[in-house]
Structures are given as structure tokens and as C-alpha cells.
Design a protein around this nucleic acid. Structure first.
Length: 203
DNA sequence: AACGACTACAACCGCTCTGCC
DNA sequence: GGGCAGAGCGGTTGTAGTCGT
């Protein structure tokens, strides 16, 4: 990291003072996009230097990933998307990047912000008015995801395929590989929430 | 009109993970 | 195996805009 690298010659705070910070201008956006077009969206430190933006690589990456990338959707989160976010959050917790991966054109930052400003309040209100208490603890959610990994390993190891693991048809890689599917398919969510329910509240 | 409270969201920070040497 | 740099993630902060008084 650029900031950490300079520890030997000067304080991190000194360097941060020299860095451009705050909101990006249209000119900065244009420069960044131009450099990425030439060099690709890799080596952010080099991109930051090449573009002459006086911003850290991290900042450039964030700007590109959240706002400048092609096919980014901004605002107007539909009811369907909101429902999906709610379901996925129930399933995965604050794994924003995973949730974003399920919503084409949406970024983890946008979903995180949307959750914090809209949905978290909604959930609170629902709970106060006697809403669902189906959610799992962090530990339990971790277990759900870990179970998915374990299940997949077991499936690979067992050649007979007729044991108890065959009941669970999840492959983690495929599970989070959304490229093959159409957007906003809710069936798999419902399917997994049933599994989730079983793990969180074993009979 | 002025001001404070609240909201939404862009951006930053610190940390972890991953790959390379 | 250990150290380093780059990349990525989630939590938090800063601030512009909006609303109510």
C-alpha cells in the first residue's frame, strides 16, 4: 500500500494530507476511466500514478468499482431487488459483496448503504410490531456457509453419492457463480432458506 | 429566513486474504 | 515458511440535501 510504504520516510498522516480526498470531480473520473481503458482494472497504485490524480490506489479502485464501471445500475432499487436483499441478508448476514453478486449491476457499497439507511430500519420496525424472528445469529450463519463447504468436500470425496450428503445439492462455487443464471431468480433463495432453517433450528 | 435534526450516500479506514518472491 | 504488496471486504465517517419548527 502506498500509505504503508512511506512509514520509513514520513508519517502516514503526512502523506494523507498531500493526497486528494473527498468527492471525485468529473475530470478525475474521466482521467481514471481513460487510464483503466488502456491498462485495465488492475494495479491500482500504478493506475493512480499514471492518471496523475494524486489519489491512492484504493480510492481509485473504489471509484471505479462503485461508479465508473460499465453496467452499473444506480438508484431505484425495485421491490424485487429489495426482497432479494432481505432474503440474502437473512441467509448470509453482512456479506455485502456476496449479496451484490446476486444483484446484477449493483455494488456492495450501494447495497450496504441501502441496507443501513432503509432496510435495517424496516427490520427494526417489523420486529417491534411482532414480526418474524426467524433470523439466525452470526455464528449460526457462519455455520450455514461452512456447512455448505463441508458438504461439497464430502460430495467430492464420496464416489457412491448415495449417502446423507446427497440430500444437499449445493456446490459452493456454483452457488455463488451467478453468471449462468438470469437475474433475480428467487427459487434458490427459498430452497436455501429451508436448509438454513434446518441448521439454525435443528429438531 | 434561519436553524437544527434527520436522511442518504459517497468516500475513507482498518483489517484480512491472496499471490508472489 | 515468512515477508511483502496488491486486492478486496465490511464498518464507519463526512457531508450535502431535505424537512420540520
Amino acid at each position: 500500500m502506498a500509505e504503508k510504504e512511506v512509514k520509513s520516510t514520513g508519517s502516514v498522516k503526512d502523506v494523507r494530507k498531500e493526497m486528494n480526498r473527498g468527492a471525485w470531480t468529473a475530470e478525475e473520473d474521466r482521467k481514471l476511466a481513460e487510464v483503466i481503458e488502456v491498462h485495465g482494472a488492475k494495479r491500482w497504485k500504478m493506475i493512480a500514478t499514471t492518471a496523475g490524480l494524486n489519489r491512492c490506489g484504493k480510492s481509485c479502485r473504489l471509484r471505479w468499482m462503485n461508479y465508473l464501471r460499465p453496467n452499473i445500475k444506480r438508484g431505484n432499487i425495485s421491490d424485487q431487488e429489495e426482497d432479494l436483499i432481505l432474503r440474502l441478508h437473512k441467509l448470509l448476514g453482512n456479506r455485502w459483496s456476496l449479496i451484490a453478486g446476486r444483484l446484477p449491476g449493483r455494488t456492495d457499497n450501494e447495497i450496504k448503504n441501502y441496507w443501513n439507511s432503509h432496510l435495517s430500519k424496516k427490520i427494526k420496525q417489523e420486529k417491534q410490531s411482532g414480526g418474524s424472528t426467524r433470523g439466525c445469529s452470526k455464528l449460526q450463519r457462519t455455520r450455514v456457509v461452512e456447512e455448505m463447504n463441508v458438504v461439497e468436500v464430502k460430495r467430492e470425496d464420496t464416489s457412491n453419492g448415495g449417502d446423507q450428503c446427497s440430500k444437499m445439492n449445493f456446490n459452493v462455487d456454483e452457488f455463488f457463480d451467478f453468471s449462468k443464471e438470469g437475474p433475480l431468480n428467487l427459487e434458490w433463495v427459498s430452497q436455501f432458506l429451508e436448509l438454513d432453517e434446518g441448521l439454525c433450528h435443528p429438531s
